[in-house]
Nucleic acid binder design. Structure first.
Length: 901
RNA sequence: GGGCGCAUAGCUCAGUUGGUUAGAGCGUCUCUCUUACACAGAGAAGGUCAGGGGUUCGAGUCCCUUUGCGCCCACCA
């Protein structure tokens, strides 16, 4: 194999690592305009993306693959446009997820719990774990071809970002926007920590509704009450009824007795109680229900907590102390039954709050936690989208965003975990709180030096919320922060709009006074081929690493990027990836053909006209070039509108159908003609070059590799001038601009289309009549007004349609119809194919009659259309198009009628 | 209870300023190993664009409505 010969199939396994290394070593991922390097120009606007940081110990899944592919597409496109780009990578410490993982691991391998290890040792072990496995996700992101600047990689727990977290906390604290206090929060008994509202998921489940009697003191009377959680009876501090309820009105103000405990509680009246629902009476458990908590506030009722951190009954539960909540539920109910307090139970469907991480039922509990007063932040964040400083794509998510921010509640930011940013608050024995940018040595209030730090850590999303600027050096005014902030586009999935995007906007505005990014692009989620969520239980999970191993990264990327619209979920199947692996191979082979065409050019260069004049161009050259310009314009328009998928689809179609199926096939003939051989090779090279540039953001590896071969081949050929100003690598090549062609006529396109029509109709007939593909048919063509075109394109036509060029008769008119032949009519052209022995006259006239009928019905339709208001009201170009169609159909009909005579 | 999305060929989906015979991939059927590619080429079958109504010269595309599916938010025991 000579050095120019390329392997027959694209070898992605060998190519991908090599190409990626070339890019990374070549420094292509670094911003072209870097504030930390000489020659920096602060006036050139950069394009910046901060990566949504994956969990540091996570493994790549299709969601990551989708995000990374999309971001890489945006980055590569902008880089090729000559814009300085920065894509800043990194990872998230992911408090709960990582802690759970390490806990599980320690339990399995060493049979120790984190409590047994102690906090310091456990945190150390988790850092060890991070050091060992933290690099995996980065290397997997590299495999996807991600062109991020690894020199700027960050981690939410690294020193700089921890300083940013500290600064953010202190600022909010000093401003009075962070407070600590007992509130009703969501408690995860499994994880033994508070979680935020967002970390609770509600699922509709089958439960039981328990009806029982609330006995009134010194009486036989009772109020019937229903509950889903009987164990919370132990924490009841009132029974509430509607003030207007005739059934219970008389009980208001009396005293009821808590079952089994005998505690005395008042019967109160509150509008909140719905008379129609359940029994119309409500037990009030302020310690374990948010509504009850509100009612209790209105009525100044005491709040009793009956659960401990593991959701066991505490000392307030009397004889039930120490029992698990569900155990207590059964025992208490059994006891109540014995005591005659039970009315009935009934199955009931309700929504249960479950922990997003642990999956167990979350308990509302009174607990002392840290909160961010969110309203002022939310207001600013709302404003930023409303006034257009931030644009959300697709637009419909703006409404979702508004709705959430308008109803937002204070954010519980403390977690009873060990892995994370510890809350920078120190307590002295007197209970004073001291904070500071540096660890304090004495109490800010009383001067005590006996300080202990708050044991809790911050919600992971607190640090992620700072990501777009903390990664650039904030709170320091670093050159990076000054130049790259605000970032350009935040590309992420819609499911973390609240968790992350909204919080970044709030924090960005609060701490930097600027929006953290200008555009939010929300992508969809990946589902299996039938739209089901991928889950290990279903067994329908597709592992992107395996897919890349088997079909190549480009195939996976192209599949993810093409064929779904912004904000819409995507159903993925391996079959789709296979189809795109085939496309990668198609690119490779078309390229292989072009490279070999260039390599075999005679060494003596011929005169070559400049790129953009239509002189010396064949019909096919003009046509493909025009198509390419149109494509370039369309792709640009689609990219501007974030329609990346549609853009990719159009490039695919152009490359496969127009370039490979038609132009390359035509070029094979042109290459045999010495006089236009070089020109043809040049056109092949130009169109391939532009195609590879357009495809590069979608499929970076195969395009880079092939482009390298193309580049090399051109430079060593007589058409070397073509590639004179090309850069070393495609990743750094300029994005194609549409170029007007001097002297080019629209008619070239329609002429080529007529040629295509003729070829198709001949091929169609051959297939119908089972004419062997090897058999070259003679033909007599009557060209009418297109005779000179057909003369000129006879060889091409013959080759593409399998005609015998030496037995091709072309004339403007025919005196008489050839014997024993089949006629094909396309517009003004008649093609007579003598198929001796195969012509069934009756069948032929039937076929022609059908075609005539079809043409006539089209003529009728078009005539009506053009007689209607359409002609007057539609734009001239649209009307003109229809007129041309009418003319063509009339010609066809006329020709067919002549045949039928 | 609010809000949003989806419904287009057997399957999975494109189709974004409304432009007039609705596209792709996979699958199916027929031919072909034609010197870039069988991970291919050529040809074919297959759709009342969920139902109904409206706006318009013109609707898969805009408006209203019905049905089915999915998602998000929300404190009804």
């Amino acid at each position: 194999m000579s050095k120019h010969e390329l392997p027959k199939a694209y070898d992605f396994r060998a190519t991908e690592p090599r190409v990626y290394e070339m890019w990374e070593k070549g420094g292509y991922f670094r911003p072209r305009n870097d504030p930390n390097r000489p020659g920096f120009d602060p006036n050139v606007l950069p394009f910046v993306i901060s990566i949504p940081p994956p969990n540091v110990t996570g493994e790549l899944h299709l969601g990551h693959a989708m995000r990374v592919s999309m971001e890489d597409l945006m980055i590569r496109y902008n880089r090729m446009k000559g814009i300085p780009t920065l894509w800043l990578p990194g990872s998230d410490h992911a408090g709960i997820a990582t802690q759970l993982m390490v806990e599980r691991h320690l339990l399995k391998t060493e049979e120790v719990t984190r409590e047994e290890l102690g906090r310091e040792e456990f945190v150390k072990r988790t850092w060890d774990w991070k050091k060992k496995y933290g690099g995996i996700i980065s290397s997997q992101i590299r495999r996807l071809g991600a062109s991020c600047d690894w020199e700027r990689e960050r981690f939410t727990l690294d020193e700089g970002l921890s300083r940013a977290v500290r600064e953010a906390f202190v600022r909010l604290y000093e401003k009075g926007l962070i407070y600590r206090g007992p509130r009703l929060i969501n408690w995860s008994p499994g994880l033994k920590t508070a979680v935020s509202d967002l970390e609770v998921e509600y699922s509709e489940e089958q439960a039981t509704l328990y009806y029982f009697k609330y006995i009134l003191k010194d009486s036989d009377e009772f109020i019937p009450v229903a509950t889903i959680r009987p164990e919370t009876i132990l924490g009841d501090t009132a029974v509430a009824v509607h003030p207007e309820d005739e059934r219970y009105k008389r009980f208001i103000g009396r005293t009821a007795l808590v079952p089994m405990l005998g505690r005395e509680i008042p019967v109160i009246a509150d509008d909140y109680v719905s008379r129609e629902f359940g029994t119309g009476a409500l037990k009030i458990t302020p310690g374990h229900d948010p509504n009850d908590y509100d009612i209790a506030q209105r009525h100044h009722l005491p709040v009793i907590s009956v659960l401990d951190e593991a959701a066991r009954i505490n000392e307030n539960g009397g004889p039930y102390q120490g029992q698990d909540r569900f155990e207590c539920r059964d025992k208490l109910w059994a006891d109540m039954k014995t005591a005659g307090l039970v009315i009935k139970t009934q199955p009931y469907t309700t929504t249960l709050p479950r922990s997003q991480r642990g999956g167990e039922i979350v308990e509302p509990m009174i607990s002392t936690q840290w909160f961010v007063e969110i309203e002022p932040l939310a207001k600013a964040a709302l404003e930023a989208v409303k006034d257009g400083r931030i644009r959300i794509v697709p637009e419909r998510f703006e409404k979702v965003y508004y709705n959430w921010l308008e109803n937002i509640r204070d954010w519980c930011i403390s977690r009873q975990l060990w892995w994370g940013h510890r809350i920078p608050i120190w307590y002295c024995p007197a209970g004073h709180m001291t904070t500071g940018r540096a660890d304090p040595t004495q109490c800010g209030t009383c001067g005590s030096t006996r300080l202990t730090q708050d044991p809790d850590v911050l919600d992971t999303w607190f640090s992620s919320g700072l990501w777009p600027f903390s990664t650039l050096g904030w709170p320091d005014e670093t050159p990076d922060l000054k130049y790259f902030y605000p970032t350009s586009t935040m590309e992420t999935a819609y499911d973390i709009l609240f968790f992350w995007v909204a919080r970044m906007i709030m924090f960005g505005l609060e701490f930097t006074g600027q929006v953290p990014f200008e555009t939010v692009y929300l992508g969809g989620l990946i589902r299996d081929e039938h739209g089901r969520k991928m889950s290990k239980t279903y067994g329908n999970v597709i592992d992107p690493l395996i897919v890349m191993d088997e079909l190549g990264t480009d195939a996976l990327r192209f599949t993810l990027l093409v064929g779904s619209a912004p904000g819409n979920d995507m159903n993925l199947s391996v079959k789709k990836v296979e189809a795109n692996r085939n496309f990668a191979n198609k690119i490779w082979n078309a390229g292989r053909f072009v490279v070999s065409a260039i390599n075999s050019l005679p060494v003596v260069p011929r005169h070559m006209p400049p790129d953009d004049t239509a002189d010396e161009w064949t019909l096919a050259d003009s046509w493909i070039w025009a198509k390419l310009q149109q494509l370039t314009r369309d792709v640009e328009r689609l990219f501007q509108g974030f329609q990346y998928g549609e853009a990719g689809r159009q490039i695919y179609e152009f490359f496969w159908s127009d370039f490979a199926d038609w132009y390359v096939e035509t070029a094979k003939l042109q290459l045999q003609d010495e006089s236009i051989r070089q020109k043809t090779a040049a056109t092949l090279a130009r169109v391939l070059d532009a195609s590879l540039r357009l495809l590069h953001p979608f499929a970076p590896f195969v395009t880079e590799e092939l482009w390298g071969h193309l580049h090399g081949a051109i430079l060593e050929s007589p058409i070397a001038d073509l590639a004179r100003d090309w850069p070393e690598a495609l990743i750094a090549a300029p994005w194609p601009e549409p170029r007007p062609i001097e002297g080019w006529e629209e008619s070239k396109v329609s002429d080529f289309m007529l040629l295509q029509e003729m070829v198709r109709s001949i091929r169609n007939l051959r297939a119908e009549k089972n004419v062997s593909p090897a058999r070259r048919l003679p033909a007599t063509i009557m060209g009418g007004g297109k005779t000179s075109l057909i003369h000129e394109q006879g060889v091409t036509l013959a080759a593409l349609a399998g005609l015998d060029p030496s037995q091709l008769t072309i004339s403007a008119e025919l005196d008489k119809k050839p014997e024993e032949s089949v006629v094909l009519v396309t517009g003004p052209v008649e093609i007579h194919l003598p198929l001796t022995g195969m012509v069934d006259l009756e069948a032929e006239s039937a076929r022609l009659a059908r075609e005539l009928a079809e043409a006539e019905s089209q003529i009728h339709r078009l005539e009506q259309l053009l007689r209607s208001d359409f002609a007057a009201r539609a734009p001239a170009s649209v009307v003109q198009k229809e007129r041309e169609k009418l003319v063509a159909f009339r010609q066809t009909a006329e020709r067919i009628r002549a045949q039928l005579k």
